[in-house]
């Protein structure tokens, strides 16, 4: 399994032709306490770079973009009950959605963990 990062602070973990997407620890730390997450419905068609989910703190709302094109298999329903999971486990239990990847070549150009670390350090 490989994990990639976008410059919009999403992570995507690949497992065969499916993937799990969430926001990075850096992103959650910038947002502060997360109070609400809206995840896409099963079956939703997402395009690379397009709106996929919404994450809100008390004073800010941010769109989460899909790192790749694909079809949503599952949105993380736990986030509806417990949006704080995004703060406590952004890159684990606080995942946003899973999707089937339409075109694996879209992963090219995403950063690996080291690359993302450098990217954040430069911000």
């Amino acid at each position: 399994m490989a994990r990639y990062f976008t410059d919009e602070h999403e992570w995507i973990e690949i497992d065969g032709d499916t993937a799990t997407v969430g926001i990075t620890d850096y992103a959650q730390s910038q947002l502060g306490d997360i109070v609400f997450v809206e995840v896409p419905d099963e079956g939703a068609q997402l395009t690379k770079g397009g709106d996929a989910a919404v994450v809100e703190s008390v004073k800010a709302a941010s769109d989460v973009y899909s790192p790749v094109t694909g079809t949503v298999i599952e949105g993380n329903q736990q986030l509806e009950e417990d949006p704080a999971l995004v703060n406590t486990a952004p890159e684990g239990e606080g995942w946003f959605f899973k999707l089937t990847i339409a075109d694996a070549s879209e992963l090219e150009g995403l950063m690996d963990e080291a690359g993302y670390k450098d990217f954040v350090a430069g911000l």
């Binding site: 306490d33 109070v35 609400f36 809100e56 703190s57 008390v58 949006p83 704080a84």
Partner: peptide, 8 residues
Amino acid sequence: LDETLAAR
């Protein structure tokens, strides 16, 4: 006041 609690 705890605005996070109010929104969650």
